[in-house]
Structure formats: structure tokens, C-alpha cells
Design a protein around this nucleic acid. Structure first.
Lengths: 378, 378
DNA sequence: GAGAACAATGAATCGACCC
DNA sequence: CGGGTCGATTCATTGTTCT
């Protein structure tokens, strides 16, 4: 039997759960599968799950400046094999499915390490995938060794219990949140840092994978109603609980680590429910789109092989397939090469380089304007 | 035996394939599994696959009892259907793996309908996922009913054949394409439309899921070298072939539908290869020729006794005749001493050490460039 | 006190080559 | 295979210290 960790009243809560009454707004200190197994059938409106990713990291990783990356090396993320991870996934999803209401939905977040296993298991359990959502990280950690693309996103799966289910989707709320445009399946949000990031007494991060509240805010606002019961079987430091409380949803958290529970309990106690009016607005920072010169080349506006020149035709350079320029034996980006040729510390390649067009020179910055005008909004 | 569909010379090409010579720059009109099964082991540098996600196709080929399945079959529930799709996926991935070179990589694109099955199968076959890439569609089709988030992206998986493989990744080229910032795992590109979208004589789109050339452009530029052999087992109307030809890569396409083959062949014939100079990309510095520091000293560019310092002049070290450095009681190579002094695990001595030149500090890396420029070609 | 410079850090499957 | 050496490699944001 799980232990209801509410500080007071845990025996009462346990008895209630056994009697089919939900332990609302509480953290259950237990293994998630065992804790879920004690909750009644079809009693939960929405499940948000952030399971271990099974990262399978190798040795230590150092930044170019020599500092070491603080990796996720916790025991809870270690599995012997894909098969063992799959068994774990199937087991907790089966319980999740049992306790979910027929019109409830489930969210699971993961990365390429685990999300394909999780997605397959969700389908195999009979859930019906409604969307996969990409959380595009505004400020991801770079790839320090230059060996791959910067791993700049995580994936969420949103699924109903079955194909025909009548799930909750607050279409208008999402549209309002997105400047009256339909909310898309890619969400650009910063990672959790700064004041929001929970710290231990010694200043170290309290949990290695704390999710931003803005992410949960959007999830719960989109797919639950006020008063709905939201369960998070991998509660950690309680982002789901804090946001649920703010949005006037009921919540249940399951977490094994007393350390995380302590932090979560304090945090949620301090969270203030929002006014009804405040619930519809959540300022999201918008960043102006940066146009890489490469986009102009990829789009075929300025094909590789095109010759560029400066305004006074002192230098000529050719565009290459990767949008770098070369001029005799020198090469580099539009900015770098412009700087090198002039012997300047820096150079705005957009205004420096020109292309012959109808007999006269045209700055490539005008091409950038054209390209921007061609782009659909969003 | 597949049929080599080149218009002329198909018998010759078939004979060559059987003899272990690849049917380069050709479309094989055949089922993809059978066609791949006739290609030699470890012969392909890169595979790009856009497998179908309509589940009938899996059933069409792999229903357990061998019978044919129509588009809609009530007896054919979704679990049988997933199993069938998984068998199909496993079968073509196994062939793909066999014909892929040990240092080759595979790309697969899909949506939430199939990508989780495919990703799991990729891992189960022993491939090692390097990245998952999100193609963020700049102009997706809206969700007309307002029942879900606008499905505004597709997912690509990029994987090497095994964990330790030395795959091709043109890091600097990608960085150049993204205005000197690391290329991220989310790519914002418009969907294929307008003049690029291939049409039948009656004006209908020639293929339902034609991919934009810009997507393949980035894929091939990032993870293949000129002359590499790229295989597309679901060739469709030949986007992979057209871009491969443009970028100076060899290609092999496999496609069953004569209608698509006809369109693809015309399209690729019309594609123009880039000049070799335009095809060149920023070199990865890891493959640049190595210059021993001793050569700089021997050449008299930096005579023994010269004093070097780091950029912030925190340390001073003297060059000895054997090109080692010493600083007080410590000594070592330019790299080792830099690491030791900083207390870092490693250090690039070329960029760490500087020399006073005309009143300002100059990195010894510029001396390396000078020395390289002095050397006779070859 | 304002602003500049510096330091810290985030779910990461993060090198190549010779002996 | 292990061990040693060369030497390639980071972006956005937040917080702290210095001028």
C-alpha cells in the first residue's frame, strides 16, 4: 500500500482511496505502478507523465571551456535493456489506462532515447494518439563536440483512451493563447531556469529534469476543465501539481523520492490559484525570426554558384552549397568573409554583399526582405 | 528480380547489380524489400526512407495468413494492423541494414501515425539513433474541425549502423548554413508547393506526399560526401534523386508505381548538377591536415626562446628547441601544458597560446595557417 | 547605481589516431 | 584491446563581480 504523504491525515487518505475515494491534492510516496494499482477504475480525467528517459550516457562530457556537464546519472534512469524499459513502460501504461476515465486523455513526454518505445507502447495498449507535440527549446544546451545536430527539442504524445472517445480540447482557449491563430503542434518555450528552477539548500538543482511551468500550463489549459483530476505518476518536484492548483484543477502526484516530495510540497503550498480572468492569459515571449543566409540558398533564391560582389566591385565571391562564400583561397560565411577581405573585425554580410540583377547591383539584404515576405505567418 | 527501369540498358544494369556493381543513378521498379535483397552487403553510404504510413500497405504484404487485405476490412483490427506494419518495417529495415556500409547512416521520415513503430524498430535492429529531427512546416494544413492541435510537423530519425560507428556529419557546413550557429534539431521549412510540386497532366498532384527539395538538400549536405551513394527505397517522384544529382551524389531509387517512376525520371533528367566549386562545403577541421608544432619551430617561424602567452596573459611559456614549452617548473607540448596550467582535462594549444606581434597578441593558430599556405600542394 | 565583464549551466546517448 | 597524445568543440540565459 502506498503511503499518502500529506503530513497529516495519511491514514484517512489511504482508507478513502481503498474505498474508492481519490486522494486529491496529495502526493503518494510510492512506486508509481503500485500506487496506481490502488486507485479506482476510470477515476482520472487526465494523466501527465514524465517517465525516465533511459538516456544511456557514456563517460564524462566537458564543455570547450573545460567545465564538466552535470549529467543525469541517477539510478532511476538506469535500465538493463530496451526489453526491460519496455516492460516497465507497458506496466505503468496499463495501470494508467485502467484508472483513466473513458473520455480522459494521457500526456507523455520524452526524447529520442525513449519516446519511440513509449509511443509504440501507447498504441499497443489501445490508446489513440491525437497529436505529437514538439517542445522546441528556446535555449537548449549546445552539442559541445560538434558531432550531431543540437538536441533542441523534446516530444510529447497526447492520446485518448480509444479512437472514438469524446475528449476535452479547449480549442478557443488555445487559439486565444496563440494570437487568434490555431495552436500548432510545435511549441517554443524556454527551458526551466532562473527563479523558477528549484534549488536545494546548497544551491544545487533540486531535480535534474524539472519541466517549465509554461509547458504544463499549456497542457492543462488545453486538455482539462476546471475541477478535473490530473494525475502525475512521476511527480518529481511537482510542476504538474503547482500548475494544476494555479488553474483550479485537482491533482494527485506519485513520487518515490522523499527529497523530491519535500520540495514539491513546499512549492505547491506556495502556489496561488489564478483568478478566472487571469487563466486565459500567459505572456509567452516571442522572438523575431532570424533569417540565416543559408535559408535563402536552400530556397533556391540564390543558388550555389552565384557570384556576389561588394558595392564597389572590389571583390568577387561565389556562393557554395552550404551557403559559405569563397574568394580565391579564402572562405567563410557572408559576415566572416566580408570581414576578412576588408581586414575588419566584423562585417554585416547582408549589406556588404551584392548580386547583379538587371544590370545593377542589389544588396542581398533585399533578398532577405523578399524571402521574409514570402514566408507564411507562424 | 527487380526490373531496372532506365529506359535503355536495363539488362546490363541488372547483370551489374547481380555482379556486385551498384545500379547507380537508376530507378529500380520493384518492391523495396525484394530490390534491396539483391543489392550487395555494405555497399550504400546513406539511406533516405519515406515509408508509407497507410496501414493497408503493411497488410497488403504481410498479413499473417498471406491473404490480401482491402483498404477497409472490419476483421482487420488495429492490433493486427500494427503487427503487420511492424513486420513490414522490420523486414525493410533489416535489408537496409545489410546493404548499408558500417559507417553509413539511415534517415527515416514519418508522422505520429508510424514514427514510433519505425523508431522502435530502428533501435531493435541495432541502429544507434543520432538525432531525431523535427521538420517544422512553415505552412501546414490547418485542423479544420478544431478538434486537435494543428499537425504542423513531421519527424525524421537519423541513425548510424551501430553505437561506435564513424559516420559522416559535416558540422561546419551545417554551421555555415545556419549563420555560424550550430544547426539545431528543429528545421523550419515550407511544405512542397507551387512550381516545385509535380503535377499530372490533369493538374492533380503527381504524388500525395512529395517532400520539399530543401529538406533533402539539408539531409544530404549534412550527412553525405560528394560521390557517396544514396539509396531511397520509397522513391516516389524522386526528390532524393533530384537533390542527390544536384549535389554530386550518386543515387539509387526503388519504386513500384510506373506512374511515379515516369515522373521521377523526367524530373531528374532536368536537374542540373552544381559545379564542383559550388558543391564544396566548409571542411570539418577534424579531417584537416595535421601540422606538428615542431614544424613551425623548425621553419624558424617561431624560433626557440620565443615567449608565448594565453589570451589574457595569465601565463607565460618559452619555446624550447624540441618545440616543447616550459613555464616555471612545468613543461609539455602546447596542448598538454595549456591543459595543465588551466587544470582542464584537455586544451587546444593552437588556439590557447598567443605570441606578441606588432603590439598585439596573435594566436599561434594563425601561424599554422601561414605555414600551411607556404607548403607546396599535395 | 549603472553598465560592462565574467562566470555558471541546462534530460547529452558528444573524437581520432598511433602504438 | 588499452593507453597516450593531438587537438576540436558552445548558445542562451541568468547571476555575480568589477569598473
Amino acid at each position: 500500500m502506498h503511503q499518502v504523504d500529506t503530513g497529516t491525515g495519511s491514514k484517512i487518505a489511504r482508507a478513502r482511496a481503498a474505498a474508492g475515494v481519490l486522494p486529491l491534492d496529495q502526493i503518494l510516496r510510492d512506486d508509481c505502478i503500485r500506487a496506481m494499482s490502488q486507485l479506482p477504475d476510470k477515476s482520472i480525467d487526465c494523466i501527465f507523465a514524465d517517465p525516465p528517459y533511459n538516456l544511456q550516457l557514456g563517460g564524462d562530457l566537458f564543455r570547450p571551456d573545460g567545465s564538466q556537464v552535470d549529467a543525469v546519472d541517477d539510478d532511476w534512469d538506469k535500465f538493463d535493456s530496451y526489453a526491460s524499459y519496455d516492460r516497465f513502460t507497458q506496466a505503468w501504461l496499463a495501470q494508467a489506462r485502467r484508472i483513466l476515465k473513458d473520455n480522459g486523455t494521457i500526456w507523455v513526454i520524452g526524447s529520442y532515447h525513449n519516446i519511440f518505445r513509449v509511443g509504440s507502447a501507447i498504441q499497443d495498449e489501445g490508446f489513440w494518439i491525437l497529436n505529437d507535440i514538439v517542445w522546441r527549446k528556446a535555449n537548449p544546451m549546445p552539442n559541445f563536440k560538434g558531432t550531431r545536430f543540437t538536441n533542441a527539442h523534446e516530444t510529447l504524445i497526447w492520446a485518448s483512451k480509444s479512437e472514438g472517445a469524446r475528449y476535452t480540447f479547449n480549442y478557443q482557449a488555445m487559439k486565444a493563447l496563440n494570437d487568434e491563430l490555431q495552436m500548432r503542434s510545435d511549441w517554443s518555450l524556454p527551458i526551466c531556469s532562473g527563479a523558477e528552477r528549484l534549488k536545494d539548500d546548497d544551491g544545487a538543482k533540486a531535480h535534474p529534469t524539472q519541466k517549465p511551468e509554461a509547458l504544463l500550463y499549456r497542457v492543462l489549459l488545453a486538455t482539462t476543465k476546471p475541477g478535473d483530476v490530473v494525475l502525475d505518476p512521476f511527480f518529481g518536484t511537482g510542476t504538474t501539481g503547482a500548475v494544476a492548483k494555479r488553474l483550479g484543477r485537482r491533482w494527485i502526484g506519485i513520487e518515490r523520492e522523499p527529497k523530491y516530495i519535500r520540495v514539491a510540497r513546499e512549492r505547491i503550498a506556495a502556489a496561488l490559484p489564478l483568478d478566472e480572468s487571469a487563466m486565459t492569459v500567459m505572456p509567452t515571449k516571442r522572438t523575431a525570426p532570424r533569417v540565416p543566409f543559408g535559408a535563402i540558398v536552400e530556397a533556391g533564391i540564390l543558388p550555389p554558384g552565384t557570384v556576389l560582389t561588394d558595392a564597389k566591385r572590389r571583390w568577387k565571391a561565389s556562393v557554395r552549397a552550404d551557403s559559405s562564400l569563397f574568394c580565391e583561397s579564402v572562405e567563410g560565411s557572408i559576415h566572416k568573409l566580408g570581414a576578412t577581405l576588408q581586414g575588419a573585425p566584423s562585417c554585416n554580410g547582408w549589406t556588404f554583399w551584392h548580386v547583379e540583377h538587371e544590370g545593377r547591383l542589389e544588396s542581398i539584404d533585399t533578398l532577405r526582405q523578399q524571402w521574409l515576405a514570402m514566408q507564411p505567418a507562424g
